[in-house]
Each structure stands twice: as C-alpha cells, then as structure tokens.
Amino acid sequence: MSGQTALSSNATAPSRSQIDTVLRAILRDVLGLDEAQVEGFDGDTGLFGHLPELDSMAVAGLLTEMEDRLDIVIEDEDVDGEMLETYGGLLAFAEAKSVER
C-alpha cells in the first residue's frame, strides 16, 4: 500500500464509481498525468499498445497496484489484450474482480 487513493475496507463490494476513482488514481501515478488529464479518460481511451511508455514492466506495476488498492487477486489467465487495451476494458475487469472477492 503506497498510501495513495485506495478503497476503504468494508464488507460490501465497492461501487462502480469508487472503483473508477481508484483506477484513475493508479493511472495518474503510472502515467505521470495530472488529475484533469485522467478525468478526460473515457471507455475508449487506449492504454496498452496505444501508449508507448506503457511497457510490460509498467503494466505489471499497474496490475500489482490494482491488486493492492482494490484488494483483488489478478491471475495470469485474467491478463489479456482486451482488458488492457482501453480504459473501459480495464474498468470492466476491475468491477468483475471486485464482485468476486
């Protein structure tokens, strides 16, 4: 836990907007953007494969940070091009994982 925006621990699954907020905060940290820039992300905003700085190590850091701040576990087989390609794909994945936990 890096002490940045994370979910508060409670028993119920987090809401869509909570997950959205945490995910934007992680992308802000990883991509070195400011708040306004990540606020501009929509479902179609391209991530892995669209941003040259987002290499495999940066994506690995992103996923590990998602596990930490969203309290989820991401398996090898969860990671595919579709979930990483757009912001919408990543958000849908994070939501599905948060329901599982």
Binding site: S2, G3, I26, V30, L31, G32, E53, A58, G61
Partner: peptide, 14 residues
C-alpha cells in the same frame, strides 16, 4: 507516501 504528497515515482512508466 501521503506525508510527501504527489504520486509515488517508482510506479511511473517513465
């Protein structure tokens, strides 16, 4: 990290 403000630099892609 919260004591320093800003975002953690080791997470940065660049």
């Amino acid at each position: 990290q919260v004591e320093l403000g800003g975002s953690p630099l080791w997470l940065r892609a660049e």
